[in-house]
């Protein structure tokens, strides 16, 4: 009888943990990676979580989510695995992607480090955009604002947004909200 009691308790416990999404098709490639990074606060690390979901890993949507130590979402970016690793739209018959390949990608994607906005290239007065020696840069800001944010030497994280594109984020000192200061690529 004691075994019955344990079995019933186990059944109930497993039932209460189920959700509507457990059997969803996109759960077939449900994987994730997590990395802590001291970006918005030197005392409480932020958490970067990268996830994948899809009917298979080759058709997965992947997300990059930054949260502060309290769990508040700071930034989220979503794309396809294919666009981030090969580029463009996956053709029919594209090679399958294994779970191990996805785990490697997610771990690498989440592995951001903190740099400083002061390291970004200068936006010279007569140029149309900031210009560096290797990459082309674009920013949603006017030159004056961009140079102000650069001069503040703010903590900055950068993540891959496409095969050949990187986005960099800072916390806007005025609004205290995360914002993309620059995008760059070849």
């Amino acid at each position: 009888m004691r075994r019955y009691a344990v079995a019933i308790a186990a059944l109930l416990l497993s039932a209460c943990g189920q959700s509507d999404t457990a059997d969803a098709p996109q759960a077939a490639c449900a994987r994730s990676a997590t990395q802590e990074v001291a970006w918005t606060s030197p005392d409480t690390p932020d958490v970067i979580t990268t996830t994948s979901q899809g009917p298979n890993c080759g058709q997965a949507i992947v997300t990059f989510v930054a949260r502060n130590g309290a769990g508040d979402p700071l930034w989220v970016f979503a794309s396809t695995y294919y666009d981030l690793t090969v580029g463009g739209v996956a053709p029919e018959g594209a090679p399958p992607v294994t779970g191990e390949q996805m785990d490697t990608f997610l771990a690498s994607w989440a592995d951001v480090t903190v740099s400083r906005s002061g390291a970004l290239p200068e936006w010279r007065l007569d140029d149309a955009a900031p210009s560096g020696p290797t990459f082309a840069y674009s920013t949603p800001f006017e030159r004056e604002t961009y140079e102000m944010l650069r001069a503040r030497d703010l903590p900055m994280i950068c993540y891959a947004a496409a095969v050949e594109a990187t986005h960099c984020l800072v916390i806007d000192p005025a609004s205290r909200a995360p914002t993309m200061i620059v995008a760059y690529g070849p």
Partner: peptide, 27 residues
């Protein structure tokens, strides 16, 4: 999200074959 006031939103459009053709996300 860990709670509904801290959730992100993810919007995905897929074809019948499962290919993702559009995604949008934001807190």
């Amino acid at each position: 999200g860990p709670s509904c006031d801290k959730a992100i939103g993810l919007y995905v459009v897929r074809t019948a074959d499962g290919y993702p053709i559009w995604s949008w996300s934001a807190p």
